[in-house]
């Protein structure tokens, strides 16, 4: 019943916004994103950055902080959502009321959506506004739309981790277990899979053409206005680039399993910052328009949205069908 869902959601919401956990994560995020905007802004002013729009650059530094913060926020809200109630025996007290099990999990989900939405919106806007004040930047409508879209995708991303961790929590009667499992999955998606994917790619393709590597290393700093440096022939460079494209394809295919990858792809496109040497070819002084970003990143967007839905439905089914005395 709606009334019970609302009552539970309201309590959950109050608990969350008064918890140290939430403020800690939001605080760390603000600290990190503001710190990273400093280096970006500094680089911009001394002319080391070649892009035209400082706001986009600033936003991209905030985005890299969000890429870590959003999953942790989702996990922080979910890992003990069910297991904690089970552990403390409050679930029994709740379920002895004239309510359905559905009400309990729905209330939690509704509250989590609100908390995640609020936290990400407020802390991103805070980071952006602080940067605007600190670095004295002018902002365009296009900047605002990009940031707005970014916030929406970040909320979905954080919620994906919420759903994943909730799923773990519905099975568990120990919050410490469900925390370890959730964090483990995050570490896997965020770090291990990307390392693994390039390892696998090089294992498949063999080592890169050796001369090209030295060429590349010498030339990458001045790549923006690349002429033929260090004595590398255009063929050698082409060979190297095609090798790197293949590596990128294979590792991309492997990383497609990671929700973090899809989120980063979207954020990169929105703010067009290079994720690393693999994408350096795309970096330029112009930025893709928002409709272009949305259409080229459609698959990533779909995955980002479907992922939390799948885990929400799974959590819902596991929890509501479970019997516990």
């Amino acid at each position: 019943m709606m009334r019970n869902v609302f009552s539970i959601a309201r309590k959950e919401f109050t608990d969350a916004v008064t918890s140290k956990r939430l403020w800690l994560i939001a605080g760390i995020f603000l600290l990190f994103s503001i710190a990273s905007t400093y280096s970006t802004s500094f680089g911009f002013r001394i002319g080391a950055q070649r892009t035209t729009r400082l706001m986009v650059q600033i936003a991209s530094s905030i985005a890299s902080a969000t890429a870590y913060m959003a999953p942790l926020l989702g996990i922080a809200l979910a890992f003990d959502a069910i297991s904690g109630e089970r552990e403390r025996g409050t679930l029994r007290i709740l379920l002895s009321r004239p309510i359905y099990r559905e009400d309990v999990i729905n209330g939690k989900i509704v509250s989590a959506l609100a908390v995640i939405g609020l936290t990400i919106t407020v802390s991103s806007l805070a980071a952006v506004s602080v940067s605007i004040l600190l670095h004295n930047i002018s902002v365009t409508i296009d900047d605002v739309s990009r940031i707005g879209l970014f916030i929406v995708f970040s909320i979905v991303f954080s919620f994906a981790y919420y759903a994943l961790s909730l799923f773990v929590s519905t099975f568990s009667s120990k919050s410490s277990h469900s925390l370890v499992v959730s964090i483990g999955i995050w570490i896997f998606f965020a770090f291990i899979l990307s390392v693994m994917s390039s390892l696998i790619a090089t294992a498949i393709l063999g080592p890169p053409p050796t001369r090209a590597i030295t060429v590349f290393n010498m030339s990458r700093r001045q790549f923006g206005n690349f002429t033929t440096p260090g004595g590398a022939t255009p063929q050698e460079l082409e060979e190297y680039l095609s090798y790197m494209r293949k590596v990128s394809e294979i590792s991309g295919a492997i990383q497609a399993f990671s929700i973090n990858y899809h989120y980063t792809q979207i954020a990169n496109s929105l703010f067009s910052f290079a994720a690393g040497p693999l994408e350096f070819g795309q970096r330029g002084s112009t930025i893709a328009s928002i409709p272009t970003v949305l259409s080229t990143r459609l698959i990533d967007i779909i995955v980002l949205i479907v992922f939390p839905i799948v885990f929400l439905v799974a959590s819902y089914m596991v929890f509501t069908r479970r019997q516990e005395k």
Binding site: N4, S7, I8, K11, D15, R88, G89, T90, R92, I93, L94, S96, R97, P98, I99, K325
Partner: peptide, 29 residues
């Protein structure tokens, strides 16, 4: 459950809330 009250085995309350807050919340449900 609308008509029956249960004192379950191994129950617990929300530690961070007061006794009254706990009961008011449960009364709501």
């Amino acid at each position: 459950r609308r008509r029956v009250s249960l004192l379950p085995e191994g129950f617990g309350f929300y530690d961070h809330m007061t006794a009254l807050e706990n009961l008011v919340f449960l009364a709501t449900l």
